[in-house]
Design a protein around this nucleic acid. Structure first.
Lengths: 213, 213
DNA sequence: ATTATCTATAGATCTATAGATAATGC
DNA sequence: ATTATCTATAGATCTATAGATAATGC
């Protein structure tokens, strides 16, 4: 949490972090027009400080989405380090992310409400998924010659899953995530049997530490 | 275009329609905060008239998205009337919609920029796709026992495709749409061979009449 | 006579900054 | 001495409406 640098820089980082966290809540609540004064009040930061860190609300919100994606990506990496099969890494990452929609509803609302950013972003989830898909294709596990096209299906489906789980609060998130992951794996070239086997393996779900770095 | 009713009602409908069309352009341009005055100016309508039709900008924008989805759905229905196999209706609808991202960039930007609405909407594309998927499952063509979950994959993928085509203007839209559709069909239970056969059939692409009703 | 539209604007809201205050560095 | 933060607010912007005008109904 406490970044390097001297005390002054740490204080500055703390203020910036408070703004980003507050912004994530407003995004999660679907309030992309929240007045800057309200955001700074939620962050318990003086109005004027905002402009020490960001030039506009859009800039803050973009940083907030990027930060959420990045910490989610780091978290997934930490849970898949011991795996070597890229197909399994991909499957497990998707299954975990699906479960996070329930464990971290704020985070998932940020994702769902920033749709296109999730798909297009060069940070966070998308580049990791693209990396896994390319590696699995290289290894002959997937048949996905067009990584970008595969990403359209994968990232879009993730948004769809998030939307579904928010809409149906009583739905079993693990079952939905696993079934959807299996469908995606089949689409990416695995056999139905192998896809379902991969999606029935146990997964680690360590206490997520998704706070600001 | 000219709705029923007397002249007064037609005039009213014209004003409303002008506001909706203007709103769709602002949505397409990613300007969800456009001042109401700017919208009415774009619609060539007096500022005050806005409040004769809508209580807020959000209400107008919701109507604009719904209208875009509805006319797109009607268009797809008109092109698939002669088909009876629900799997083929679904495949053809998806392939056509993918191509429309190029033919109607404004429309596609509306879709992409209103992401969750597309997935959740009870009008337009989603209910039609759900209908086709359920029918194909009923007929033993698809293996998709959970229609809502299938919709998460289908609707999400459509968003992903739209995003991809906007991002890569030189990409072959027909090839991308067909390849993605095949992947989705495999995920929904068709064999790879049959999915690719379905996606290589010729499709009608009549001059789209997607204007306001 | 009725209904819809238009023009003009009061009042509310928000942004961005100036100037004062507090915290840290040296 | 320097840097970041805070408070307070001028000026810009926007919303929503009042009142006038134009179009249609009968």
């Amino acid at each position: 949490m406490t970044t390097a640098g001297n005390r002054l820089e740490r204080r500055k980082a703390r203020t910036r972090s408070a703004l980003i966290t507050a912004a994530q809540r407003f995004i999660a609540d679907g309030k992309p027009n929240a007045p800057i004064l309200e955001i700074t009040q939620a962050a318990d930061v003086g109005m004027g400080s905002f402009y020490n860190h960001f030039d506009s609300r859009d800039e803050l919100f973009a940083a907030a989405v990027e930060s959420a994606l990045e910490s989610l990506g780091d978290y997934l990496d930490s849970l898949t380090v011991e795996l070597s099969d890229p197909a399994e890494i991909f499957a497990q990452s998707f299954r975990i992310t699906g479960r996070l929609f329930r464990l971290q509803p704020d985070l998932s609302r940020v994702l769902v409400n920033s749709g296109p950013s999730l798909i297009a972003s060069t940070k966070g989830l998308a580049p990791r998924a693209a990396r896994d898909i390319a590696a699995a294709t290289e290894a002959g596990r997937f048949v996905a010659p067009d990584t970008d096209l595969a990403m359209a299906l994968v990232a879009g489906s993730l948004l769809g899953l998030g939307q579904l789980l928010l809409q149906q609060p009583d739905r079993d998130d693990a079952a939905a995530a696993d079934a959807l992951t299996a469908g995606i794996l089949v689409s990416l070239g695995l056999s139905r049997a192998e896809a379902e086997e991969l999606c029935s393996r146990p997964i680690p779900l360590g206490a997520a530490d998704l706070d600001q770095p």
